[in-house]
Amino acid sequence: MRLVRFDRVQRAVHWASAGIFAVLVLTGLPLYFPAVERIVGRHVLIATIHVWAGIAWPVPVVVSLVGPWGARMRRDVRRFNRWTRGELEWLWRLGAADLEKGKFNPGQKLNAVFVGGAIAVFLATGVVMEWFGAFPVSWRTGATFVHEVLAYLIVAVVIGHVLVALTHRDALRSMVRGWVTVNWAQRHAPRWAREELRAERTEASGAPVPRGAGSIDD
């Protein structure tokens, strides 16, 4: 038996954002490393691609959140925002604590929030660097500094994200095909599995579903 973990909209958002991130990294390399610039050249073209990819970066997330197609997306974003004491403890001990996990484990939640925050900061500092005329020089220097430090951080985080995904094939498949087995859910996201199964039973029994019930597991 299968449960939908990510619907079509969420998967499209994930892979569109990932694709744009790849473009940003590839065009960012020559802009930052002289050895790569030496090979690639064409500074203005590369910088233009980088800037427009950066502007496009938040678009999939924002579009997915605002429309009627974004119900699951919005629900998961609310999940990223809610943390129990147990989850904080689990994160603090780097996973060495008992926790009945919801749909996302605390590491996944932190990853999602970090990437969201990073996109906002990259966008703001990138605007200062590109449309510099409106800002004092010391701000441009600061923006460049923040942009570079954060670039190192996010590349490290994404490398970790990809490595974990490659060693957790069921989770990876849910971002490709959308579903996980109930068995997987009960093992890795028991609180969410219970929630989903209860919602299904309620629907199947034909009983009216109370407003809000079953929409959130944590």
Partner: peptide, 13 residues
């Protein structure tokens, strides 16, 4: 993160 980024822009130099 946004606040830290803003502080970095202003005081980063």
């Amino acid at each position: 993160m946004v606040a830290l980024g803003a502080a970095g822009v202003v005081f980063g130099s």
